Amino acid sequence: MGFLLSKSMDANLKKQQEFMLHNSRLQMERQMEMQNQMRERQMAMQVAWSREFLKYFGTFFLVASTGLTLGAMKRKTPAMLAPIFPLSFILAYQMDNAYGTLIHRMRGEAESIMASERERLGLPHGTPTFDSVEKARRAKSSLASILDK
């Protein structure tokens, strides 16, 4: 009788372990999907910000270039055209960032760094561990309780 009960409990335990493993895998997949969707939304916001900034900077560049060109022609001083040169580099960068391949080149460079220069990617004091986070949490908790008194 005890053997049958033990065998039944072992089977239930095994089923429970498989169920827990399946649930933890499902939870991990959901977390990874959520993090990926958040990353995609943040990247979309960055591209949208670049495009919006380009509209304003492009307008500024157009007005400034026109004003500097007319001023240089009126005063007959070509030196007034000098600010157009650095401003054009900023405009080209913003155009590349908003509509060009800058993101693709940056991704390629990041992949290269991850493959060949791994030592540059370390965090100060290493990766946080459960113990380090718990120690900091306890320190904050004890400090808050001292301040509340």
Rank of each mutant, 00 (worst) to 15 (best):
M1A: 10
A11I: 06
M80L: 07
A82C: 03
F3S: 00
G67C: 12
M43Y: 05
L121V: 03
S24T: 15
V133C: 14
E111A: 06
G126H: 14
G108W: 14
F89S: 06
L62D: 12
S65N: 05
A82I: 02
L102E: 07
G126Q: 13
P83S: 02
K140R: 11
A48T: 13
L5D: 03
L70Q: 01
G58T: 13
S142E: 13
K76C: 06
D10E: 04
S6E: 04
K15N: 15
E109K: 05
P124I: 14
F85D: 02
Q94F: 01
D10G: 10
L5F: 08
M9H: 12
A11N: 04
S24G: 09
M95H: 02
I113Q: 07
F85E: 06
M73T: 05
L91Q: 15
M80S: 03
E18Q: 12
E29S: 06
L91W: 13
F57R: 01
A11T: 00
I103K: 10
I84L: 06
N23E: 06
L81R: 04
H104T: 11
G2F: 09
R120W: 04
P128C: 07
R120D: 06
Q16R: 11
A79T: 10
R51Q: 14
H22N: 03
Y99H: 13
R51V: 01
G122R: 12
A82L: 03
K15D: 12
Q31I: 10
P78L: 05
R107H: 05
E119V: 11
M95S: 00
Q27D: 11
G58R: 04
R107I: 02
R30P: 14
Q31M: 10
Y99V: 08
M1Q: 08
S24E: 06
F57D: 10
F19Q: 09
S116K: 07
P83G: 09
E33V: 14
R41N: 12
L68H: 03
E111M: 06
E29H: 00
Q31A: 09
A110T: 13
A110S: 12
A115C: 01
H125A: 05
L81E: 02
L26T: 11
K55A: 13
H125C: 04
S116C: 03
